[in-house]
Design a protein around this nucleic acid. Sequence first.
DNA 1: CTGTTAGCGCATTCAC
DNA 2: GTGAATGCGCTAACAG
Lengths: 339, 339
Amino acid sequence: MATVTIRDVAKKAGVGIGTVSRVINNSESVSDPTRRKVLAAIEALDFSPSLVARRLSLGKTMTIGVILPFFTNPSYVERLRGVESILSARDYDLILFNADTVVRRDSYMRDVPRRERVDGLLLITHVPDDDDVARFLRAGVPAVLIDSRHPQLSHVGIDDVEGGYTATRHLIELGHAKIGFVSDYLETALNFMPIRDRFLGYYQALEEVGIPFRAEYHRQGEHGRLPARRLARELLSLADPPTAIFAYSDTQAIGVLEAARDLGVAVPERLSVIGFDDVEGAEYWHLTTVHQPLFESGVVGCELLFEEMITLPVGSLEVQEIVLDTRLTVRGTTGPPPG
Amino acid sequence: MATVTIRDVAKKAGVGIGTVSRVINNSESVSDPTRRKVLAAIEALDFSPSLVARRLSLGKTMTIGVILPFFTNPSYVERLRGVESILSARDYDLILFNADTVVRRDSYMRDVPRRERVDGLLLITHVPDDDDVARFLRAGVPAVLIDSRHPQLSHVGIDDVEGGYTATRHLIELGHAKIGFVSDYLETALNFMPIRDRFLGYYQALEEVGIPFRAEYHRQGEHGRLPARRLARELLSLADPPTAIFAYSDTQAIGVLEAARDLGVAVPERLSVIGFDDVEGAEYWHLTTVHQPLFESGVVGCELLFEEMITLPVGSLEVQEIVLDTRLTVRGTTGPPPG
DNA sequence: CTGTTAGCGCATTCAC
DNA sequence: GTGAATGCGCTAACAG
C-alpha cells in the first residue's frame, strides 16, 4: 500500500536511483551484474514506476485524446476500435471526449490541447476552425482529423461526394428517376462536412443524367433512426412519391425501411433503399449500402498522428491527406423501380 | 509555447506561488485584491495549470478506468454513455481498456490498478478473481462491478436469474411447453456470470411448472447474430422442434428471427421469440424482450465508484449491491403456440 | 491573509 | 558504469 518507489528499489539493490531509472528504461550503460541486482529488487518489491511522475519528468502524457460526437453511433464505435488497435500496441492510453453539443465541443477544443493532457489529438468528424488549429499549434499538440478536413491538418477520410454519387448512381442505373434523399441537417452549428458532401454527390449524379433536383425529395432532420423514419414517411406520402431513397447513413436507412413497413410499401419491389457506411448491422438488414473502411480509418488516423508526434517541431511535417476507398455493396434492399 | 507555469504567474502578479495555487483552487483565504491581481496575470499569460503536475502532487489521477469486453456490443455502448454522463459532470477523464480476450483481460487486471493510472476502476461484465481483488485493495484502487459480482466489491446489476425466469415464464403463460434457449457458451475462459444466471432462470421457470428440461433445446455458441442463427436453425430442424425460443440477448434473438425466416417459420404464429436487453434495435424488430436499464447501470456504477473514492481508507465502505429492475416488454414476436 | 519550503516519483545532467 | 544533485509544476504545511 505504501507505494514503493524507485528509491526503495535503489536502496534494496544497493545502487543509486539513477541506475534504477536506467534499468527501467533499458539504457545500454548498465553492467549486467548491477542490472540483474536491480531487476531482482524490482521483482522482490513488486515495483512498477509511476506513470504520473514519469509523465511529469518526461513532459509527455503517454495518452492520446479523441474528440468525437458521441460514440453511440455504430460507425464511431468501429473507428474507435481501429484507433484502439494501434494504441494498445504502443502502450498509449486513450481518453475519450464526448463532444455531442457545440458547447462541449468548444470547451474540449479549448481545454484538451491546453493542459498537457494529451500528446496528440484525434478529431473525428468535428471540424476545427482556424482559431482551434492555431491553438493546437501554439500548444504544441499534434492533431489529425478523421472524417473532416482543414488545410493545415493531416486527415484521413473518404471521398463523400463520390460516395453519395455512387449510391445515387446505383439507383439511377437500376432505372430509378424519382430518388429521395434522407439526411441530417445540411447546415448545423456542428457543421459536419460529410453531410454536405454526400448531398453534393447525390445532386451531381442526378444532374449528370438530367434528372432535375426536386427539393421535396430531400428531407433533413436530426440524426437517428426515428427522425429518418418520420422523414421517410413524409416522402412516401407525397402525391408523387420517390421509388428509391438514399439515406445518409445505415442507421437512417433502417428508419426508412421501417417507414416503408409502416406504410406497407414493399422493399425492394416498390421502394429501393440504400444506406451508407456498411456498419455491422447492415448485413443483417440485407441493406444495400456504400461501404467505407471505418476500422481502417481509425488505424490510419492513429498512425498518422504518431508520425506527427515523433516529428519535431510540431507542425513541421507536411500535411497528409489520405483518402480511403468506398465500395458499393449491393444486398437486398435495392432493385428496379415498379412498373 | 514555452509553457507558462504557476511561477510565471506569481512573478507577474507580484505574489508567491502559494497564493497563485490558492487562487487556482478557489481557496477562501485570499484577499479580493490579490485574487484579482492573480486572475489578471493568469488571463494575461493565458496560463492553465498542468494536470500532470497537479496529479503528481495530489497523488490523484483525475481519471477513472473502465475495463470491459469490447464496446462494439450495443449494450456496452449504452452503459458507457451512462458512465460518461457522470464523469463529464465531475471533470474526470475516462480511460477505456478493451479486454476482449483472456490475455488482455489478465494484463489489464494486473497493470491498470497498479501504476497509479486511475483513481477508480469500473469493471463491466468481467469477473475479477480473488487475486485480482486483493491486488486492487493492495494498490488502493477502488473498484466497482457492473453486470458482474464479487463478495468484496460493490456492484450494480440486475437479477439475471429473475430475468431469465421472466422471459421463460412469459412463454409458459402463453401456453408454450416446448421452449428452446439459445445462449452464449455457459462455460468459457472469460466466465461471464449473466449467461449462467439467465440459464438458471430459464431452468427454474420450466421446473416450477413441471416442464422437464430437454438438453437438446438448449443450444450454446459464440455470441453474435450469426452463431445464434445457426443454433436456431438446428433447433427448428429438430424432429420435435420448440414452439418458442428464448435468446440470451437481443442480438441473438435477431439471429433466431432470421433462422425462422430462413426456414419459413412464421413468427409469432408458429414460433415465439423473446430476447433480452431491449437495445435500441429491438423496437424495430417488434421484438418481445426483457428490458434492462443499461444506461442507468452505468450511471449508478459510476456514482457508486465515486462514493468509494471519497471514502478512506479504500475498502472501508460497506459493500453495496444494487439491483436494478428488469421489465418484460411485450411486442410482436411472442404469442400463443400453434394449434 | 500570504510568502517560503519541502516534497510528489521519476529522468537527466553532471562529476566521479 | 554509476551515484548524487537538480528540476518537471504543483500542493500543502509552516511560519510570519
